[in-house]
């Protein structure tokens, strides 16, 4: 429950940052917040008694958390990081040309 609340709050803060901030970099931060919120929610999927998803050969019966969300999140994080890197690169290039990263002064974004 608390995790869901956190997730929703983070998600909405991220969306707010995308929708209300006038700076492209803040928009990227917002996007990352949104992604991070979903990842956070994914890995808090604790169904049974926790424990690291690594088998201890000495105690093979130890409980283990569901490893799949972790694997999925790992994959998704890498994807998210890649997209962010690309987006930042493009913003850097755009800044070099337009000398601004204010959304309102970039008229081309509107069309």
């Amino acid at each position: 429950m608390i995790y869901s609340l956190c997730f929703v709050a983070l998600f909405m803060i991220g969306l707010y940052s995308i929708l209300a901030q006038r700076d492209l970099i803040k928009m990227v931060i917002g996007l990352n917040l949104v992604e991070g919120a979903v990842f956070f929610w994914t890995i808090t999927m604790v169904r049974e008694a926790g424990g690291v998803p690594i088998v201890d050969l000495a105690f093979p019966e130890l409980p283990m958390v569901d490893p799949i969300p972790q694997a999925l999140t790992l994959t998704a994080i890498v994807i998210s990081a890649s997209t962010t890197a690309l987006l930042l690169t493009i913003i850097v290039e755009l800044n070099r040309m337009a000398r601004t990263i204010e959304i309102d002064s970039l008229k081309g974004l509107r069309e």
């Binding site: 970039l106 974004l109 509107r110």
Partner: peptide, 13 residues
């Protein structure tokens, strides 16, 4: 229909 970029994005939520 095409106000500023962020109004366009507002459609999503």
């Amino acid at each position: 229909l095409f106000p500023s970029f962020q109004y366009q994005l507002l459609w999503i939520p």
